[in-house]
């Protein structure tokens, strides 16, 4: 019976004829019961994954042409798995700083639920599997774009830029902007100006979104030495940069209307929501530091999520209606 050994703090069980399988040391504080399926799923950053699936779906639906519904579902599933894989690899590489940051301390690796090597293996297997399957089952343009997305997120953003430059999320934001292009490519087999516009909306949206978060979370980044803009250039400069990117984002958000990707409803929504985004960015710029400034930044951060969601939701609905009716 486990635990009745006389001397050691470790007792090996499972070696007798009555027990099959590898030896398991249970009489130790170090003994781990191993990760659960749910903890592996947590590695995939489900909330990020849901946003990726949503934007990819919009690319899929907005693209001209048709894809068999089963293959469209397969494409979305594989894009989600690819995104989840890059989340797992990100958690593997950033485990050292995740332990020290309030926002990330509850992730499975810092909590000791999943080991770093398990996260690495999980991420690599899912990355390779999702890319190959998307290539074989859907098309290789989509597969290549998914590989580019994962590679960009891990090698360019996580390993290279994140700890090197305050421009980390500006360039690294490209990784989060690829999913609608992948969805588009799944249908058309190529890249076009419309899919590039969808890419650019998310790409330009990322800096004000993330910097709004970092305005009230910058101490976390400061503690672990990640050169987020507020840490390196200060809160004032960050607020200025948020405003500048918002000024770029607002017109970019309306472009789908002018190239025929979105209809009138989209054009109106993008203009109104863009106006609110700009107003909030101006309020953040004018806010005093401290609790009031944090509150404004938090408001802008939450609105930025709503803004992107609404833009893509309206595009989705308009394109579904157009395909059903027309």
């Amino acid at each position: 019976m486990a635990g009745q050994g006389s001397d050691a703090s470790l007792e090996v069980v499972g070696t007798g004829p009555e027990r099959q399988g590898p030896a398991i040391a249970v009489d130790s504080d170090d003994f781990s019961v191993g990760p659960s399926v749910g903890e592996f799923f947590e590695l995939m950053k489900p909330r990020v994954m849901s946003l990726v699936v949503f934007t990819a779906l919009v690319g899929l639906v907005a693209a001209p042409g048709t894809l068999h519904p089963f293959l469209a579902g397969v494409a979305l599933l594989l894009i989600a798995i690819g995104a989840g894989a890059s989340g797992a690899l990100n958690m593997w590489y950033d485990a050292d700083i995740d332990r020290l940051m309030q926002r990330t301390a509850a992730r499975p690796i810092p909590r000791g639920k999943v080991s770093e090597s398990e996260a690495l293996s999980f991420g690599v297997v899912l990355s390779v599997g999702s890319v190959l399957m998307l290539g074989v089952l859907v098309n290789w343009t989509a597969g290549a774009l998914l590989a580019l997305t994962i590679g960009f997120y891990i090698f360019v953003y996580t390993m290279w830029l994140k700890r090197l430059t305050p421009q980390n999320i500006v360039i690294g934001g490209a990784a989060g902007a690829f999913p609608p292009m992948i969805g588009w490519a799944a249908v058309t087999g190529g890249v076009s100006i419309e899919s590039i516009v969808l890419f650019l909306i998310i790409f330009i949206w990322t800096p004000p979104h993330f910097w709004a978060l970092s305005l009230y979370r910058y101490r976390d980044y400061e503690r672990v030495g990640v050169p987020m803009l507020p840490v390196v250039a200060g809160l004032e400069e960050t607020r200025r940069q948020i405003l500048l990117y918002t000024l770029l984002l607002v017109p970019m958000g309306v472009v789908p209307y002018f190239i025929g990707l979105g209809g009138v409803v989209y054009g109106v929504c993008a203009t109104v929501l863009g106006g609110i985004f700009l107003w909030l960015a101006l309020r953040v710029r004018a806010a005093e530091e401290g609790r009031e400034g944090d509150r404004m930044a938090k408001q802008l951060f939450l609105f930025s999520i709503f803004y992107l969601f609404m833009l893509f939701a309206v595009l989705l609905v308009e394109n579904v209606v157009a395909k059903v009716v027309g």
Binding site: A2, I24, V26, F31, V33, G34, V37
Partner: peptide
Amino acid sequence: DDKLAEYKKRQKMR
């Protein structure tokens, strides 16, 4: 025993 049972349960689920 609890730990071993949990270990086996998780292994089975995986």
